[in-house]
Amino acid sequence: MSDIHRPLLSVENLTIEIDGAGVVDGVSFAVRPGEVLALVGESGCGKSLTSHALLGLLPDVARLTSGRVLLGDTDLAALPERALRKARGKDVSIIFQEPSASLDPLTTVGSQIAEALRQHEKVSRGEAMARARAMLDAVGIPDPDRRLHQYPFELSGGMCQRVMIAVALICGPRVLVADEPTTALDVTIQAQILDLMKRLVAERGTSIVLITHDMGVVADIADHVAVMYAGRIAEIAPVDDLFARPAHPYTALLLASVPRLDVAPKAELATIDGTVPSPQEFGAGCRFAGRCPLVSDRCRTEQPPLFEERPGHRTACWHRERVGEITRAAA
């Protein structure tokens, strides 16, 4: 049995509380080497918190109350801050939604890349800058010698995100967490950044945990998809299987709300009525019950576990056999 099938990163039963409310509740997923896992959901479903928790970078108000973040055999969630710092940027890196704001405006991009390298490896300043330059070249920034000495305000948003990717990858991490990396960018730039990430996965075998709310991005780059709703995993599946046969009403409605070019437009694009409940409104049952067309009494009182619908395809729904009705109605 080779190592390749063993997950590189496995998140187990992650629970995060804000003011006593479980905003992320028992989230589990695994990523194998070189694989891209997309974490999908509406704003406020806890996907960004989940991704920041992987590096122990939760905001002050949030608390990790249980769960493990296993990278190989190490539980990052149990590491003390000092040991965690050694892993950040070296074993697990992260890029954020706002690339321009993620760079210190008063420091050249070259020295910010070099800073990440020098934090984890004993190299001279000159060598660090040389490797930063090589990294800028690798992420497709033209004229890297000039860009190295420029400040973030002299670069476009897309270029800043390339710089952030260079910062994230310079120490050769095994996992890259990308928290909505293309949301703040122009559509054409989005495609370039996604292509860059795909290429890096292929070249370096880096695993990616990609946070997004864009199903188009998911279809483009992901191998596996975890759909989150109100802090819980609703459905997790290989990307093709999820798109072909969604087994959770939320996923089915999400997919139905994506505009498609190959299908003649009906009167209106489908939407999901209502909004994500706030943590104070979470009941004992399924958190999607308030918006679900298949809802029954059982959904309101009893939380569905994750059922193995097909090998590798799990869904948290009592009425998973009826989800096809939603998909057919939308088609």
Binding site: L57, E81, R85, A87, R88, F96, A101, S102, D104, E115
Partner: peptide, 26 residues
């Protein structure tokens, strides 16, 4: 509270190092 502080910590810098190298100057 700015994003670059979180990003600098994500590189493995300690809070003290982030303050000394980036926050004070800003």
């Amino acid at each position: 509270g700015k994003d670059y502080v979180r990003a600098a910590r994500a590189r493995g810098l300690s809070m003290r190092a982030v303050v000394m190298r980036h926050v004070l100057r800003n």
